[in-house]
């Protein structure tokens, strides 16, 4: 019996660019069959880590193996064992989808007899069968992404790396990409290692690692991470928000803020707190909602800073700062 090799394993993996420590010593273990999410803001070092794992960038320190092969000493073995979808598109727009795939099959040495069937398979999986003969330049952004994922799978890799596979796509297309990824994990015996800076997408992963400024701050399942924050988000609307906020501060020792037009605060055991709130606040409450912490909250709680993303609005940043400060 052989012990199944780890899909990805890294110890002290680091990369410097001149004076920038892009990745500052990362330890990672990804088991075969997992969907592993790498979560962090822009510039956190996600792409650089992926590039080191995919043998595109030499680590300046540390070691890593992918599918059991060393990323420095067994480059070609690693490359054959992985599929890659980059953050930036790498398709040839002049060629058709089929021609792009055929080219990939040749570059990866897919056995001639298997190419046709494999192409039909992956095109079907991403729903591009009827557009297979169109030039890629006529594709929409979402179709290109799907084709890239199909291409990454063509040579039946053991680990598929996806660097921000849904960035820049509209919500519907993002959802459809995720449908394909979920379909994929059901159908193929494959490990998926992906990065994202969309918190909601990390929910789809079996485990996630939060990376900030080149360091992994925590690795766990999304559920465990959310549980670890230990606080729920409570939002109330009242006729007199100022008075409600003052009362909250005085009687319950919480720091409410106005977020999304509602008085918002964090407290452990939010649902059990609601009856007390009604009894003791002294300001009439029109509505109340309690939500479990999101991964945004998790991120803030672990990194202590706002996610430096264009998507985040001012009010949610304020909320996040509060979550972080009140840990």
């Amino acid at each position: 019996m052989t012990v199944p090799v780890r899909a990805v394993s890294a110890r002290g993996l680091a990369r410097r660019y001149d004076d920038v420590e892009a990745v500052a010593g990362v330890d990672l273990d990804v088991e075969p069959g997992e969907v592993f999410g790498f979560l962090g803001p822009n510039g956190a070092g996600k792409s650089t880590t992926i590039k080191m794992l995919c043998t595109l960038v030499q680590p300046s320190a540390g070691t890593a193996t992918v599918a059991g092969y060393d990323v420095v000493r067994q480059r070609d073995d690693v490359r054959r064992a992985i599929g890659l979808v980059f953050q930036d598109p790498t398709l040839d727009g002049y060629l058709t989808a089929e021609q792009n795939l055929r080219m990939h099959a040749e570059l990866y040495g897919v056995p001639k007899s298997a190419v046709g069937e494999r192409m039909t398979d992956v095109l079907g999986m991403v729903g591009l069968t009827d557009r297979r003969r169109s030039r890629v330049s006529t594709y929409s952004g979402g179709m290109k992404r799907r084709l890239e994922i199909a291409r990454g799978l063509l040579h039946a890799p053991r680990v598929l790396f996806l660097d921000e596979p849904t960035v820049g796509l509209d919500p519907q297309t993002r959802a459809s990409i995720w449908r394909y990824i979920n379909e994929l994990r059901r159908r193929e015996d494959i490990t998926i290692f992906m990065t994202t800076h969309y918190m909601d997408e990390a929910e789809y992963c079996d485990r996630i690692a939060i990376i900030d400024q080149g360091r992994i701050v925590v690795t766990d399942t999304p559920e465990a991470l959310k549980a670890s924050v230990g606080k729920d988000r409570v939002q109330i609307s009242t006729d007199d928000d100022e008075a409600a906020m003052a009362a909250l501060r005085a009687r319950f020792d919480v720091s409410p803020v106005l977020a999304e037009g509602q008085v918002t605060f964090a407290i452990a055991g939010g649902e059990g707190f609601v009856p007390r709130l009604f009894a003791e606040l002294g300001v009439p409450i029109k509505s109340v909602s309690v939500s479990r912490p999101s991964l945004d909250d998790v991120f803030m709680s672990y990194t202590g800073s706002t996610i430096r993303d264009a998507e985040s609005s001012g009010s949610s940043n304020q909320w996040m700062r509060m979550m972080a400060g009140r840990r």
């Binding site: 930036d88 598109p89 790498t90 398709l91 727009g93 990939h104 570059l107």
Partner: peptide, 16 residues
Amino acid sequence: WDREFGFLREMLVAPI
């Protein structure tokens, strides 16, 4: 051109 549009990378990362 291939470099600018990314396709060069598809060739450079292949196990060849």
